[in-house]
Design a binder for these strands. Structure first.
Lengths: 256, 256
DNA sequence: CGCGATTACTGATCCAGATCAATATTTCGC
DNA sequence: GCGAAATATTGATCTGGATCAGTAATCGCG
């Protein structure tokens, strides 16, 4: 599942470096908005991590010193917050082309662990080198800032979702979000093969596993989706979207 | 309340520009880690917005085109998500020295409005100029990335708080967070003068106003804090902190 | 300084979703 | 291919916090 698409054949001169320009994901990733020759400079600081992670393996642990950021090349990972087990909380799911580790810049260590949801390959980019190169390549700096800004915006949307929306809308929002991200990556938008368990989804949405199960059943019985285990087909995306655009009743301005 | 601290006397050559180097907030703000002469270059792209905002006024509205970022110089603002009234949700409170607007880079417009909680002065920094200068001044680029990374980390912590922690811990976490930020700014750590209403707090924490009121009362009756309207005194910070460090009972690993 | 409008507190009820419990279904190790 | 563990679904209760309702303190403005 989610086995992508970015196994480029082109390699630059025999090292384990890849040409980012030839990568199928370059439109989603750091190279966006950078011209040919500069992409090669970027590629020179990117290294494929040799063995792909297997399901359940950690890319890094919470608390690990921050050295590099990673781009998912194939597969998917979850970010897990909560130093000691038990209070483990999933804070995000990441798909091919997405950059992780940026939240570690400020403190110098990773606040969350990254754990593979399936067989997953990543590109590793030393942060010191990336920062230096961003200074030299304006387009890279811009794209880096854009990606971080997008991450802030996304986290904020999640805050609003978790802080105020009922359970059904949370799940609908997740499904729509995954759907559009799948589509960007060339996967069918309405046929999702989820790589995460109900448990992960529940943790991410701040719900109990049972509630998530019930919601899948309810959305199915209402004809919005068809569910078979981790295979989800979106039958009525508009209805899902209407669910999310929560029509709150009264409009009461609260002064300053 | 919160009338800060950064009314510098030094002005550079008669314009409305300020010397960031002389600003009391420079240790919290963009100039951190930049040397003297470069700080002047930064100051040259910073403009004080002439009239301070009065309580309730907007610095920018949701949807406004993104042109500049802002640093709170004195006072405080709330970020408000939710295009049309009624579903208004507070997503953050910002104090002197804090930078807002970075969430607008990706989309090119502001996802949230910024509204003054009291009389508030800001510095305005054109983003195009900031981006260009960040390329020229490595320390500025680094600090900008650090600030954004910190914002991501903070939003993520809020996600975890809103997604899983009970009401009491949410309020405790907010009080402790405000306390430490007040302290960084030279205000007493255990005597908070809140500039936001109960309504704002409730919205931010994803709770009902009544619940917030009750929690203030409860925490007071338990001897952790003393409350008189918006004046909060932290009597037992350790106990508050113990509340937040939610001791979840069982530790059940969930595989991948 | 007095009266209406916010803003804050408190009590009574109700409900969405957690928790407890039991049963399928799938996956994986051997 | 079989049995055990992990994962998913469904049902029955229980509860934290929302909602409804009413009062009190404070603010703002004539």
């Amino acid at each position: 599942m989610l086995t992508a698409t970015c196994e480029t054949k082109t390699r630059s001169e025999g090292t384990h470096q890849v040409s980012c320009g030839a990568c199928a994901l370059h439109r989603l990733c750091l190279p966006l908005g950078i011209d040919k020759e500069d992409i090669d400079r970027l590629a020179s600081i990117v290294s494929r991590r040799r063995p792909p992670l297997r399901r359940g393996e950690y890319l890094f642990h919470a608390g690990d010193a921050f050295r590099a950021v990673y781009v998912i090349r194939a597969g998917s990972v979850k970010m897990v917050n909560g130093s000691r087990a038990g209070d483990e909380r999933v804070t995000g799911f990441y798909l091919p082309g997405e950059l992780i580790g940026l939240d570690a810049i400020a403190a110098g260590n990773h606040p969350c662990a990254a754990r593979a949801l399936e067989t997953t390959a990543v590109c590793e980019i030393g942060y010191a080198e990336l920062e230096a190169l961003a200074r030299a390549i304006p387009g890279l700096q811009r794209q880096l800032l854009r990606l971080m800004s997008g991450e802030i915006r996304h986290e904020r949307d999640m805050m609003v979702l978790l802080g105020g929306m009922p359970a059904g809308e949370r799940l609908a929002a997740l499904l729509l979000n995954l759907s559009s991200r799948f589509e960007q990556r060339g996967f069918p938008a309405r046929e999702l093969r989820l790589s995460m368990s109900r448990h992960d989804i529940a943790s991410y949405l701040g719900l109990a596993v049972e509630t998530v199960s019930r919601l899948f059943s309810r959305l199915q019985s209402e004809g919005l989706i068809s569910v078979r285990r981790r295979q989800v087909i979106i039958d009525d995306g508009d209805a899902l979207a209407r669910l999310v655009a929560a029509p709150l009743s009264v409009l009461n301005e609260n002064s300053p």
